[in-house]
Structures are given as structure tokens and as C-alpha cells.
Design a binder for these strands. Structure first.
Lengths: 221, 221, 221, 221
DNA sequence: AATGAATGAGCATTCATTCAT
DNA sequence: CATGAATGAATGCTCATTCAT
């Protein structure tokens, strides 16, 4: 005789679901109120789960943050790779950069929650108690820079591998700063301007700076 | 023989001084731990003043934040105007932009505390209880953009007033994003790269984008 | 070998009991020191429970007061109805009033705590933050008056229903004032005089006033 | 040549005036919020005087309460004696009691503030720190009882001095309870019924009880 | 796996009071 | 006589966390 799980069963086997609900709520609330500004009680109210459930699934508040960041990072870069699956195989660097960055802007819009929390953690040390989360932050920044370098390198592939590398190294940090700055502006000034416009302008700038490097050799940093 | 007032006198009658000490400590600590992450007790320990003294000088924690932001904003823009007192009267837009932005970078280094707190407030809503502080944040962003426009306009003055205006309007937001993004990078990756390099690269990008606008008319946004 | 639960076990799982302990302590202390004069810390010391336990069981200090008043009112009127279960079915109004009021006096002695807190809340607005408690106060006064009317009406039942009603309406408020005034005197002058004497005298007065109404029709208010 | 006091002089010589302002504000606020519920800060805001001024004029919060009570008691009994200056020299005890109590009701209406604070102090021990004030409370109750006895004795003077004394002793406490109870009712139920009606009914009751004593000798307590 | 009760440290804020000017 | 600044204890309340069931 089969005992089908009641649709609103109070028993166990909701483990995985609860865990994910908690992670989602934590990402949502912490990205808005910051880590210190988010209390376990608030998350308990938000999810309807008792506070003790949080400690069943996570070691501590800091551990919860770490898990949130890890999952967010994973999703973010997965989305990035996914959206860039079929890059253009020719075209000017400018065109290619536009293609890359436009898509990158789409990912920004979807990963707003994660990026907001990431930047808050970057700026303030309010989560000093969560070293794992801080480690994730550092990795994400690093990987982000690497990804930006990859996009630039690909876009300048036509200029030769060595040159493309040189350009990518020179501009990756600046590209990422443009990305971060655009995100800050979007958070601050709201929808005054669509993301795509920010990304196009960034592509324009990177293209111009890159061409200068290609043309001049080592004259620009 | 003169009896100088003991430098560490425990008297009252030091109203203004206490107030400023509190403001300084609050700016320092809040910029590091965020608003929610900064407790009045922590500030009390930091300053040596009892908690009640804080409520003598400020209405509440939110009121203290507002005062911190106001004073920080005032100092920031004062430093900006001061450092740009004798702008170059000729030279290429590129040279002029470099001059402006280099100095702007110096102000960034001195105003790190203020800018960090500002960005944290921009990103998270953790200070929703301090509407005056949020208002200051908005004003600062606005004024910052206007200042960036002013620098670009001045740099392109040689191309005619109307063109300079057009360039400034088209690039001010991007310039500010570059500034913000560089600040984020500095907070995150630390001193891997001096501010001046960031600012030079930003000047290069703005110059290139600006020249394109001057050359092409309305082809770039 | 049986391990009986230690009678003073420090376990949790005693939700109801803790709640009741808190209510009792609050009733006791608040009735003596007033609402504003009673601190949560004092109640914490009194009960041995940590302050946070209070907020687990009640929303706030005001909510605690409301619960105290509600439970007190419930117990008070239950005791009243209980003590008057078998009223005399004949006798003069004077005799019957004495029977009723004597028993009412007993309830006063047992409900001293509740009545003291009730009167403090009636007199001062010190619990303005607890509107539910104030509502209870109003209900209790109303119900008290109705109960006094019921006692008078029953006592004068021999004079016909209409007359009894008339007498009850005319004297209920005065009867209640006598009850309140006697309680005040007992609080103030202490045991100079037993409650029964106060109640007898009140019965005498109500009987005399009532007879006058019965005799004269509408000549007394 | 007369030096008129400048209407808004900032200098001294406002001592007496400040003191009285403080006393008035304290009586007003404490009678509404209770002693514990009234903070020195609230009184400071209410009067516009700095908190330190309070300690210039009074020793402490408890001392202030004592002064408030003392002044209130003084005024209350002065008003009582004043309003009863020309008592009726003949008439039935009933008529005379009505005359006395009606006027007593007027004093109640004017002394509401004082009586409210008095009763709160009687009921709760929230001012245990102010023994002088508590002493005043006791004295006032005592003097009140004596005054009630005086009114009854005068009203029954026609029955002979000894009998009048007997009646006064037997009824003074009850009379005062009726007075207190009426005051409680007025605070609680508000203006549902004018004071004069309460006082008339009390006079009726006292007259009836008194006549019974006069008639029966020692049969009533 | 899930939960209601408990816990004590810590929170922002207000308290009565003091004191130098 | 008047006052603005200071002070530390206490206020009501929330925090992250634990634990028996």
C-alpha cells in the first residue's frame, strides 16, 4: 500500500525545499538591507520557517551568507557562460565587444540581487565574521576580471594572439570598472537609461582604447 | 605663571568639540562597518564619550548619519573645487582631461571614507530610517554628475561652446561610472594599481569618445 | 529504573507555565507600582525568567498589560458570579442587599490586585500606549455597573419588575461609587475597618434610597 | 521712580515665577501620566526651562512631587473652607447636607488635577521614593475625613451635640467613600452625569442613614 | 526534519542627576 | 539665577543562538 505524500505534509522530506527557500529569502533581503541589517528573525518572518530551521540547514548567520554568495556566484557565471555560448567569429573588435557586453548587461539585470550584495560586501567590512563569504567575494572579483579579459581577447583575436593578450591585460580592469560603475549608476539613478546603452558606451570606449594599443604598441598602459 | 587648560580636561564646556569628535568617529566607523553594522556602543567606546552624549548632540542614530553625510558631502565638494582652482587654459582635451581627473583622483584618495559610506548607502537600503541621509546621497550623486560634466565641458571648450556641451552631456554619466568603478576596484583589489593610472585611463577613454563625437556629430549617444 | 523529571527542571517545554508565571508576576507588581513604574527588568528578576522570554510570550509591555487586565477581568467576574450562585429567594430588599454586597466584599478582598491596577488605569493615562488594556478597563466598568444593577434589581424584585428596574437604574451608579470608594479607603487607611462593615453600610444606604423610590415614585433621582 | 520688570527680561528675579511654572506643569502632567510616568525631560519640554532649573528649585524629582502635593493640598482645603464660609444656620439635616455637599462638588471639579494625583498615589506605591509626598497623602486623607465629619456634625447640630457627634463619627468614612467613588466615576465615565447629582444622592444617603441613627440610638454602626 | 521555548548579550534610547560657567 | 554639556545606570526591546522534544 502506497502512502502518497500529502501535498501539505508536515513531516520531513521538505529538507531541500526549505534550504532553498531560506537561501532565496536571504539573498533577497540581504541584498537590500545588507548583511548586518538583516536579522534572522526577519528571514524567519519572510519564509514562515522557524528560526531553528535556519540552524538546521546552516551553521550560523555567517554560514548562511557564505552559502548565499556561493550559490549566487555560481549562478552568475553560469549565466555569463550560457549567454556567450555562440560568440561571433568575425567582425571588428568594436562589433564583437558590443555583442559581448550587451549580453553581459542582460546578465547584470538578472543578477542584480547578487551583484548588489557583492558590492556591499566589497565596500564595507560589515561581514568580517564571514571569512568564507569574503573569500567568495575575492574569487568572484578575480573571475570577473578574467572573464572581462576573455571577452576583450576574443574581440581582438584578429590582431594576433599576442596583441590580443596585451590589449586584454591592459583593459580588463578598466572594463570591469565600467561594468561596476554602470551597475552603481543603475542602482542609484534607477532606470534613467537602459543597461544596453551603458554597455554600448563601454564597448565604444574599450574598442577605442584597444585600437590605440594595437596601433601604437606599448604607449598606453 | 600661566595655567594652561589641561589638554585632557574632563570639564564640560566643550560642546562643539565633542560634537565633532562624534561626527569623525561615526564617519570612520560607519564607512567601514556600514550603518546597520555600527552600534552606538561601538562609537561610544571609540570616542570615550558616554552614549547619552550622542543624544545630546544628535537626535538619533539616523540623525547622526544624516549629519555625517552632510558634512562629508560638504568637505568632498569643497576639496574638489579647491583642487581645480587654476585649470589649464589651453592644451588638447586629452591633456586637459588628464589634468582634471588626476586631481579628482587625489580627492578620491582623501575622501575615501566618505565615498565608501556613500556607495554603501547607494547600494543597500539599510539606512531607510534616515531619509535625510538618503536625500543627501541623491544630491551628492547629482552634483557629482554635474561636476563631471563641468570637467568635460571645460576640457572640450576649444571645440566651441555648443559642441562642448554636447560632449559633456553625452559623457558625464559614463565618466562618473568610471570614477565609481575605479573606486570600487581600489576598495576591492587594494593598491594593485595607483589611482592616477585609473584616472589616466579614464581620461584616455573620455578623450577618445569625445573626439569621436566632435568629429561625427550625432553618431554616438 | 525510572528517571523522574526534576521538579525544578530548567528545560524548555513549559510554555504555558512560563506564560502564566509572567502574567501573575506582572499583575502583582503592576498593581503595586503602576504600569509606568514597573520595569520589564523588575519582572524579569521577579520571575527569574530572562527579559527575552517576555517578548516570546507577549508582544510588548503594553501587550503584557492588556493580557493581565483581560485575565484579571475574567477571573473577577467569574468569582462574582460564583459567589452569587444561590441568592436568597425572599426577605426584605435590605436583607437581600446585605447578602449580595457582603459576598461582593469577599470578592473585593480576593481581587484586590486586579482592582488596584484597574483603578490606577482609570485615574491616570499612564498606559496610553496600551489601548487594548484601556478598552478592557472600560468594559469592566460597564460590566461592573450592570452587575450592581442586577443585584439591586434582584433585591427589589418583590416590589414588581418595573419598580425594581427603576430602582436599579437609579442606584446602580451610586452603588458602584460606594464600592469603589470603599476600596479606595481600604487601600488608603488599611484594615481600620473590615470590608464587611463597608458593605453593610452601603447596603443600608441603597436600601434606604431604594425604599424612598418605591414609596415616592419619581421623587428621587 | 518705578522700575517696571522688563516683560521678557533674561536676567534673574524670575526665580519665584519659574518655581511656580514648574509646580504647575508638574501637577498637570503628573496628574495625567502618574509620577513614574512623568519624566523630568517631559516637564522641561513642557515648561521650556532647562532640566537643571528643576534642580535649582527642588531637590529631586521626589522633592518636586512633595512640593506639588503640599501646594495642592493647601489649595484644596483653602477652597473647601472658602466655599463653606456661610453655612445655613437652620433647615433639616437633609437640606443642610445638600448645601454642604453641593459646594464640595464644586471644589471637586476645580481640584480635579490634585485629586487625581492624590488617588493615584493612594492606590499605587509608585512614589515610594517620595516619603514626604506620601505623608502629605495620609494627612490629606485624614483631614478630608475630619472635614466630612465636620459637615455631617454641622448638619445634624439640631439633634444635640452628642448625637451629632455620634452621627458624624458613624458616617464620615462612608461619606468620604461616596465622595471618592463619585470622583472615580467622573474620571472613568466622564460627564455622563453632573457632579451635583452625585453629591445630591450622597446627601440623600447620608441623611437617611443619619436619621436612622438619630431615631434608633446605637443600632447602626 | 522540524519546531516552540528559552537564553543572555547587545541594541537604540531615555532616565535622573551633576556641574562648570 | 540660569544653562548647556556631561554622565552612567536603566529603559523597552531585538539579537544570534541552543536545545529538548
Amino acid at each position: 500500500m502506497i502512502e502518497p505524500p500529502a501535498p501539505e505534509t508536515r513531516t520531513n522530506r521538505r529538507g531541500r525545499r526549505s534550504r532553498q527557500e531560506i537561501l532565496d529569502a536571504a539573498a533577497r533581503v540581504m541584498s537590500v538591507r545588507g548583511y548586518a541589517g538583516t536579522s534572522m528573525s526577519a528571514l524567519s518572518k519572510e519564509t514562515g520557517l522557524p528560526k531553528s530551521a535556519f540552524y538546521h540547514h546552516f551553521e550560523s548567520k555567517a554560514g548562511l551568507l557564505s552559502a548565499v554568495m556561493e550559490q549566487g556566484a555560481h549562478a552568475f557565471f553560469a549565466a555569463m557562460r550560457e549567454t556567450h555560448r555562440n560568440p561571433p567569429e568575425d567582425g571588428t573588435p568594436h562589433e564583437r565587444l558590443r555583442w559581448y557586453l550587451r549580453r553581459t548587461g542582460d546578465v547584470m539585470e538578472n543578477g542584480e540581487e547578487f551583484l548588489r550584495l557583492l558590492l556591499v560586501l566589497v565596500m564595507s567590512r560589515e561581514a568580517a565574521e564571514a571569512p568564507e563569504a569574503l573569500q567568495t567575494v575575492i574569487s568572484v572579483r578575480e573571475e570577473g576580471r578574467a572573464y572581462m579579459a576573455h571577452m576583450i581577447r576574443s574581440s581582438f583575436a584578429g590582431a594576433g594572439e599576442e596583441t590580443a593578450d596585451q590589449v586584454a591585460n591592459a583593459l580588463a580592469a578598466f572594463g570591469m570598472a565600467g561594468y561596476d560603475g554602470a551597475f552603481v549608476a543603475l542602482q542609484s539613478e534607477g532606470g534613467g537609461r537602459p543597461v544596453s546603452e551603458w554597455m554600448d558606451q563601454l564597448a565604444d570606449a574599450l574598442a577605442a582604447l584597444g585600437e590605440a594599443i594595437v596601433a601604437g604598441g606599448a604607449d598606453a598602459c
